[in-house]
Structure formats: structure tokens, C-alpha cells
Design a protein around this nucleic acid. Structure first.
Length: 683
RNA sequence: GGCGGGGUAGCUCAGUUGGUUAGAGCGUCGGAUUCAUAACCCGGAGGUCACGAGUUCAACUCUCGUUCCCGCCA
């Protein structure tokens, strides 16, 4: 039996606080969620829109260690950046919380305790790697070793980044602790598990039968495969010191696994909000007439569709998500977005560099939102969406209407006369838009919804072009009054219906029109403006974005790419420019090795006798680890022969053999492609 | 490797239960226009619907195989 839902709890995936938010997060999760929340509020629904930072887990502890600081310092830094940038983009969270808050620790611990006390968890003892020097168990990420598949020596305990294979820490050959460098030992440890397998039949009923029609195919398909393959108990605790402490005496030094505590973050955020607003939190999570919707990316499907619901089911008093409209992924300029590779457009940087252009980003990302498949953001596309759509269609309609109103009526809204049949058709069309756009939003088809919104602006442009008020003003000024009256009403509708997508522009437009309407259904009316009321001076809603602006952004990305290559290959950055004269001071020549012997009592040094074409001289070179002396005789090498003489380990050296050094510090000779005469100059 | 999702015009994407000449926006080309940030409005061109086989009177749509991309898991 269908229950009429009258209250909406909307959650958006908690961004992980080890980096700022980028456009991929926005297009996939936060902008769709915000549109949905804003729309429902305009409809007069009861809405709670929840966000917050996910601040636990191993990667944060690793980052803290790498930066020689504390996990708390890391999460404080990113939580602040993320929270501020969401606010500035107009993501209308009712609360943006964080999982390091005491209320969250308490809520998550209580949740665990309830499951524990009711026997909903099972305990198991397993073998885990332990670092005896650091005195702690090692997370998979804290163990490195040789990958059994590709022999990469830098593989992590959970994955080899060279060949991409997922691993167990115990698979690694020669495992080493990242904390101390020591060889870890296997040690017994006790953990608690949520027996997902016990919920299989319930999941089948609830998802496979209950949501076959209304969940997106990517979401449903993934759930189906998980459920049908058979679920395994999943550990809910971890040996780690950063996170929510497991509230059991016997669990000293253990925390809740981050996937267990993070979704509870939605609940604790609700409690926090309720406390601040002196309201009841429980109806948002327990009332049958509350609709719970999780906005997430596709990597999070199983957590929100299977694991978290099982937690809620185990607890027993909660409702389950009505829908989990997971999006696919957004690429950037044809390449995967990556925080570690710095291949991203960071929200906080965008807001700095594109002042007052929040809606341009919101618009662009909505039109390319990866609703059904991965999509791609490019800066030229961004520019085109602004210049050819927002500005040309929406901005231009408002501008031409407002300019004409000022030109003909000094900014006073004119009376309309009798509407023609054509105008009646337009009025009827406008009336349909709240439903057309709303239907798309309710089906989580935000791209389509926004396209429909733009169609309303097109209706306005066509109306003006068809009726040509600038021609009629002389012969039939009465008709022009009607035309501009109706055109202004269309602008008013746009200001109402645009609010979920373009909140800043809507506000600006309403200010220009001197109205303050926040009611979705009113967006279909053509009496929002009253004849005789004044409107304000025209202002551009959007500004043209020039080629140079987007070119600069592309350049910035290219620089990130170059920097990345340097980092990855461990290549030295380029040195300062030198003049040709500087270069000419170097006397570099091809010389032939005549004799070679080891310098006694040294490991690295060879003494070479070389023919420079000018003379024969001795030089000392640190290549004994890479070349046998007898191997070098007769070889041609590059030499800097005017390097000031220096005595090394008792041997006078009159020059330097030039070598190539790779990132491991290994040396190799550089030789001419063809044999040349000794003494040939290198230039 | 197993599983899930996806590969449709230059670009970003729609295509409902298989059915007449496969759609939209942007770009492009042409026309019309000048109120408007050279914007708006009208029209045209552009697709062997990843590839190969099969089922069918009929397949972008169903089945099988191949291939590429993304995700989840091992």
C-alpha cells in the first residue's frame, strides 16, 4: 500500500576530508541534491538536507603522517575549506556537520552498542599484521611489499598501484611496515562483524521486488549482483586509533570501521540540527511518511543500498531509502579526475577565480551531469554554455525585455490589453512548465529539467521576435503594452522556476523585477507582476566569458599534468635559463678511455686515463658500482675537460665524465652515436 | 578474472513495452531581423545507433559472441 510521503530527508555523500571538493563531486552529488532540495522546499514540502565531512579512516592518518601533523589538523583544514566552498556555491544544506563531532561519536557508538547488546553482531578472531616496534596493528595501506603478480616492490597491502590488482596484505612478498620499516608479524585480533548474509531474503524482497521499476538501472543492477552472489559478514571494527572508539572494554585500541560510522553521520547530523532548532530528530529517520533519499556517486552504491540499510534493519527502528539516485563519474578534459594527480577543477579555486559566477558552474555541471553514463567537462564547453545558452537565451531575453520596458515606459510595468489567441496559447504553455520541470526533477532527471527550464526562456524569445514590439511601438502602442507585460511575466516565471538550478541568478532577477516569490506553482502564473509597479534598472544576468579566460584554465591544467609527470618519474624540475655564453664556457669533448683501475680502499671510485685529443690525463669517476674497469677501456665518453682539477682520495682528477642518472641514482655512460675522433667538441 | 553500467550526429546527451524517412541542445552552413551582451527567430546539412552473428515480416531496441571505457568485488 502506497503511503503519501510528506517529508523528505535528503542526504548527500559525506565528502572525505583529505582534500577539497572538485567538480566531479558537484556534478555527481551536491548539485543534483541541492536542486532536489530547493525544488521540494519551493513546493512547500518539509525538507531536511544533510551534508557533512567524513573525517575518519586510514587515508587521513597516512596523510597526517606524511605531512608530519595530526589527523585532526588535516580534517580541520579540509572541513573548513569544504564547508565554506559549499556555502558559497549555494548548496543549501540545512546542516553541514562532521564526523569528528562528539555528537557523532556518541551516536555511532550507541548504534554499535545497540546492535551488540541485541546480538546482531558476531565476533571473529583473525590474523593481522602487527608492527612490534610501533606497537600497533597495521592497516593494509600501512604495509608495503612486492606484488606477487607484477613484482612491483612498492605495492600496498590493499592494492598494487603498478598493475592495479587488489591484494590482501598477506599476499605481499617481503611485507614491510610503513611505520617503522620493520617486518610485521601476524598476530591474532578480535573484530565484530555485521552478518549481511542474514538479511539476504529481506534485501531480495525490498530491493529486487520492491524497487525494480523506480531505481536507476546502474543502482538496481549492482544491488542485484551483490545480493544474488551471496553476501558475507562484514567487519565493522578496525585496529586503529583514529575514529569512533568501539564502546567495549575488550576493544581497547579499536575503532569503528569508517564505512560503519560514516553513514551514521547522516543521523548524527540530523540530531545536531534538531538540537539547534529545538526539534524532534526521529521523525526524519523513523516516520513512515518520511521519504529518505541518498545522493551519491556510483562508487558508493553498495554502502547505501545494501550495507547501510542492513545496519538500519538490524537496529530495527529506522526507515529505508526510497531511492538512491547514484550518478556515474565526471571526467575532466578527457581524463579521469584525480585528487592525487591534481587533475581537477577545485571548487574553492573556481569560486576565487570566477567571482559571482556560481550559477555558471551550477548550470554547466547540471547540463553534463553523469546521470546515465560517465561524462566529460571541458573548459571550452563551459564557455559555450555560458555564452551561447545562459547569456544568449536566458540573459538576453531578460535584458531585451527590461531594456524595452525602460525605454517605452520608464520602468513601469504596462497594463495588458485583450490577449490574442496566440498570446493565450503562450499563457497556457507557461502554465505547464511547473509540472513539466517538476516531473523531471521528481524522476531525478535534472538535465532534462534544466533543458525544459531553458525552453521557457525560448518561448519568451520567440514571442518577442514574433510580435516585434520595436516595430509596433509607432503604429500600435497599445499592443506593445500587452507584449511587454506578458514578456515581463515570463521573466518573472523564470525567476521562480530557475531557483533550484540558478539560485543566485533568480535572486538577482527578482530584485530587478521587484518581486519576492518563492512558490513553485506560482512559476506557471502570468500575474506575478502588477501593472503600474516599477521595476529596477537592467543588469546583465551573465557576462561573456572570453577565450583568454578559459585558455588560462586549460594552461593551469596542463601545468598540473607536467608537475605530475615530474613527480611520478621523480625527475628534477628544469633549472634556470642560462645564456649561450654560459654554455660556451663548458669545454665538453669526446674522449677515449685508455686505462681504468679501481681507486684502492674505495667502493665507488675508478681512476681513468683518457685521451682528450689534446693530452692524456687522469680523472676520477664515481662509477665503480656500475662498470668493471676492463669494460671501459676503448670506450668513448663525454667529458667536461675544463672542470678545475681536484684531488679525490689522493688522486688528482682533471675533468669529469658525464653520466646520466636515473631516479634511483643509477649511473650510465653517455656515448656518441657514431665513433668520432678523440677531442671532438660537444656543442 | 567475476559482476554491474555504458559505448547513438563534430560536441553534450534523449530514445518509453521491437514498427512508417533515429530525436534535442550546442557547433556548422544558409535565410530573416535589429529591441537585445553580433545575441534572438526561421531553415538546411551531419548518424552502416562500438563490431560480428542470430531470432523476427520488422531490431538502436531481444539473444549470443567480440571489443573499448567506468565502477564494484576477488
Amino acid at each position: 500500500m502506497a503511503i503519501k510521503k510528506s517529508r523528505y530527508t535528503i542526504t548527500s555523500a559525506l565528502p572525505y576530508a583529505n582534500g577539497p571538493v572538485h567538480i566531479g563531486h558537484l556534478a555527481g552529488v551536491y548539485i543534483p541534491a541541492d536542486i532536489y532540495a530547493r525544488y521540494l522546499r519551493l513546493k512547500g514540502e518539509e525538507v531536511l538536507f544533510i551534508g557533512g565531512s567524513d573525517e575518519h579512516g586510514v587515508p587521513i592518518t597516512i596523510k597526517a603522517k606524511n605531512e608530519n601533523t595530526t589527523p585532526q589538523a588535516i580534517v580541520d583544514r579540509y572541513h573548513a575549506i569544504i564547508k565554506k566552498s559549499f556555502e558559497e556555491l549555494g548548496i543549501s544544506f540545512d546542516i553541514y556537520s562532521r564526523t569528528s563531532n562528539p555528537i557523532h561519536h556518541e551516536t555511532a557508538a550507541d548504534f554499535f552498542t545497540k546492535l551488540f547488546n541485541e546480538g546482531k553482531l558476531i565476533a571473529k578472531i583473525s590474523q593481522q599484521y602487527y608492527d612490534e616496534e610501533a606497537n600497533q596493528f597495521l592497516a593494509d595501506r600501512y604495509i608495503t611489499g612486492t606484488c606477487p603478480f607484477c613484482n612491483n616492490e612498492q605495492a600496498y597491502g590493499d592494492q598494487c598501484e603498478a598493475c592495479g590488482t587488489s591484494l590482501n596484505a598477506t599476499d605481499l612478498i617481503n611485507p614491510k611496515s610503513a611505520l617503522s620499516g620493520n617486518i610485521p608479524v601476524l598476530k591474532e585480533t578480535k573484530h565484530w562483524y555485521l552478518p549481511l548474509d542474514q538479511y539476504e531474503s529481506w534485501l531480495k524482497e525490498w530491493i529486487l521486488k520492491g524497487h525494480k521499476e523506480d531505481w536507476k538501472s546502474n543502482v538496481y543492477g549492482q544491488c542485484k549482483s551483490w545480493i544474488e552472489q551471496g553476501l558475507q559478514p562484514r567487519a565493522v571494527t578496525r585496529d586503529l586509533d583514529w575514529g569512533v572508539k568501539v564502546p567495549l572494554k575488550e576493544a581497547e585500541g579499536k575503532v569503528l570501521y569508517v564505512w560503519f560510522d560514516a553513514p551514521i553521520g547522516y543521523i548524527s547530523a540530523t540530531k545536531e540540527w534538531a538540537q539547534e532548532h529545538h526539534q524532534d530528530w526521529e521523525k526524519w529517520w523513523k516516520a513512515e511518511d518520511t521519504q529518505l533519499v541518498h545522493f551519491i556517486g556510483k562508487d558508493n552504491i553498495v554502502f547505501h543500498c545494501i550495507i547501510f540499510p542492513c545496519m538500519l534493519k538490524a537496529e530495527g527502528s529506522y526507515i529505508f531509502p526510497d531511492n538512491v539516485p547514484a550518478n556515474e563519474f565526471l571526467n575532466l578534459e578527457n581524463d579521469k579526475i584525480s585528487t592525487s594527480r591534481n587533475w581537477a577543477v577545485w571548487l574553492h579555486e573556481y569560486l576565487e577565480e570566477f567571482k559571482d559566477k556560481q550559477d555558471v558552474l551550477r548550470y554547466t555541471l547540471t547540463t553534463i551531469a553523469p546521470e546515465t553514463k560517465d561524462s566529460d567537462f571541458t573548459w571550452t564547453d563551459f564557455q559555450a554554455k555560458n555564452n551561447n545558452e545562459l547569456l544568449a537565451i536566458f540573459g538576453n531575453l531578460v535584458n531585451r525585455t527590461v531594456v524595452l520596458t525602460h525605454k517605452y515606459y520608464e520602468g513601469i510595468i504596462p497594463e495588458h490589453g485583450e490577449y490574442s489567441d496566440y498570446e493565450k496559447e503562450i499563457i497556457a504553455k507557461i502554465a505547464e512548465f511547473p509540472k513539466i520541470i517538476g516531473d523531471s526533477i521528481e524522476k531525478y532527471r535534472f538535465r532534462e529539467a534544466l533543458a525544459e527550464f531553458m525552453n521557457l526562456a525560448r518561448v519568451g524569445n520567440k514571442y518577442l521576435t514574433d510580435t516585434e514590439p520595436w516595430k509596433k511601438q509607432k503604429e500600435n502602442p497599445e499592443a506593445v503594452k500587452t507584449i511587454l507585460h506578458l514578456s515581463l511575466q515570463i521573466c518573472a516565471s523564470l525567476s521562480v522556476l530557475g531557483e533550484p538550478f540558478l539560485p543566485f541568478t533568480s535572486r538577482k532577477l527578482q530584485k530587478m523585477l521587484n518581486i519576492n516569490v518563492h512558490n513553485w506553482e506560482a512559476g506557471g502564473r502570468t500575474d506575478l507582476l502588477k501593472a503600474g509597479d516599477p521595476i529596477n534598472q537592467p543588469e546583465y544576468l551573465f557576462e561573456k566569458i572570453e577565450d583568454t579566460t578559459v585558455e588560462a584554465q586549460v594552461r593551469k591544467l596542463e601545468e598540473a599534468k607536467t608537475q605530475n609527470l615530474i613527480n611520478r618519474n621523480n625527475v628534477q624540475p628544469a633549472k634556470e635559463d642560462v645564456t649561450y655564453d654560459d654554455f660556451q664556457k663548458m669545454d665538453i669533448r669526446i674522449c677515449t678511455v685508455l686505462a681504468a683501475e679501481k681507486v684502492t680502499k674505495t667502493k665507488k671510485l675508478l681512476k681513468l686515463k683518457v685521451d682528450t685529443g689534446i693530452d692524456q690525463r687522469d680523472i676520477v669517476s664515481g662509477i665503480a658500482e656500475y662498470y668493471e674497469p676492463e669494460h671501459l677501456i676503448g670506450k668513448q665518453v663525454l667529458m667536461l675537460i675544463n672542470l678545475a682539477p681536484k684531488e679525490i682520495k689522493g688522486v688528482a682528477s682533471h675533468g669529469m665524465v658525464l653520466m646520466a642518472e636515473n631516479s634511483n641514482g643509477e649511473l650510465t655512460l653517455v656515448q656518441p652515436d657514431k665513433a668520432v675522433k678523440s677531442g671532438s667538441i660537444v656543442k
